[in-house]
Amino acid sequence: MANASGLLVIERILRDRQGIWQQVVEDRSLARLTGQMLMSSVIALACYGAVLGSFNGVLMALTSAAKLPLLFLVTLAICLPTLYLFNLVFGARLSVRQSLALVMVALTVTAMLAVAFAPIALFFLITAPDYGFFKLLNVSILALSALVGLRFLTGGMRVLNEHGLLSPAKPAVEQQQEAPAGAPAVPAAPAAVPANGSGGTATLTAPAPAPVQAPAQAVVPPGYMLTPIGGHQHQRPGRPAPKPAQPTPPSMTLLYIWILLFGFVGTQLAWTLRPFFGSPGMKFSLYRDIDGNFYAEIFRTLSNLF
């Protein structure tokens, strides 16, 4: 699975996501991995774009097949420098390759989920060819696919946080550590002293320490509780102590801000590159005049549909 190429890279992402995150952490062969994800994403988005444009004929299908991959890649090119600079400002140690690989994982998952919904979109296109319903259906599919892809992105950033790549590098510290308080002292080795009037030596052996008798355990009457309800619970023997929760680095907070930025840029770019579906009753055109915005169009479609 580690050498999966082309469209099979999505199978590795879904089955071996920990291996993907470890590869990103180690910055190992990321150029090849990113190339595989880029190729699979472009093919999947082109297939789904053809489904979108098929509502208005073959020419619109071919145009949308080229526009949809362009939409995601241009949005990525616009927003990726912001994510990288956010990480640099707050001391994260991510390289450009690592940042790009993380975002490409999210984009690949989004593209593959969208193309998995393509048969459903085609089914409704054939059985219920209503323009408003078809447009809202596909917007919902793309939104759901993007949410799942962004969940992969946040999961990958959490793994990088666990490996310390989102925190500033700590200064070097001395390797020698102080002994814990209350540790028993180690007895010194016996000293060799000269024997009486001879050149040899005799070893003075210290007397063995008296065995320490363990304190007798108190007899607890039946039904008596050592720890009151709501009191401190001692750690059970043999069970590791829970790890303290790591503080959320600023890079994780800025990641959510960046996701919102990515969404706003993507929706506005989609509005600029329209049409993707091709409105019925209008002539074919490669682009429309820039008027209004994406959200106003969605609200208008909802009001006309209901």
Rank of each mutant, 00 (worst) to 15 (best):
L305P: 09
A106F: 00
L165N: 02
V58E: 07
R151H: 09
G164M: 07
N293L: 03
L136H: 00
G200T: 11
W21H: 08
S54E: 04
T301A: 05
L7N: 13
A50C: 08
G199A: 12
R32V: 04
G132S: 14
L137I: 01
R97A: 15
L260Y: 05
A77R: 00
T63I: 14
I229A: 02
G223A: 00
V265P: 01
D291F: 13
R32K: 07
R15Q: 12
A46V: 02
E297I: 01
P81C: 01
S167F: 14
F55A: 06
A114G: 10
A241M: 12
M104I: 05
A77C: 09
G266A: 14
L52F: 07
I78S: 02
A296N: 12
K243Q: 13
P240G: 07
E162R: 14
I257M: 10
R300M: 15
F262P: 00
G182I: 00
Y131I: 03
L8E: 05
Q268H: 11
V42D: 01
Y287L: 15
V159T: 04
N87V: 04
S303D: 14
T75A: 09
G266L: 08
V89D: 10
L88W: 10
A116E: 02
R239A: 06
P211E: 12
K283S: 14
F276W: 05
D289Q: 13
L226Q: 03
A146L: 13
M39E: 13
L150A: 02
F284A: 08
F117A: 11
A66Q: 04
I13H: 01
I13D: 01
N138E: 00
L88M: 10
A216E: 05
L286W: 07
V105N: 01
N161L: 02
T205V: 12
I126A: 15
Y224K: 12
T201N: 13
A218K: 13
G292E: 00
F299R: 13
L38W: 15
I259S: 03
V103Y: 15
K67I: 06
L83I: 04
C47N: 08
Y131V: 00
V96I: 14
L83N: 05
S54D: 04
S5L: 08
G266R: 03
V74P: 10
T267W: 11
V173H: 15
L68I: 02
V96C: 11
K135T: 15
R151I: 10
P280H: 01
L226P: 04
V265I: 03
T108F: 02
Q246I: 05
P209I: 00
F284Q: 01
I259N: 09
L153F: 06
V24W: 03
S95W: 06
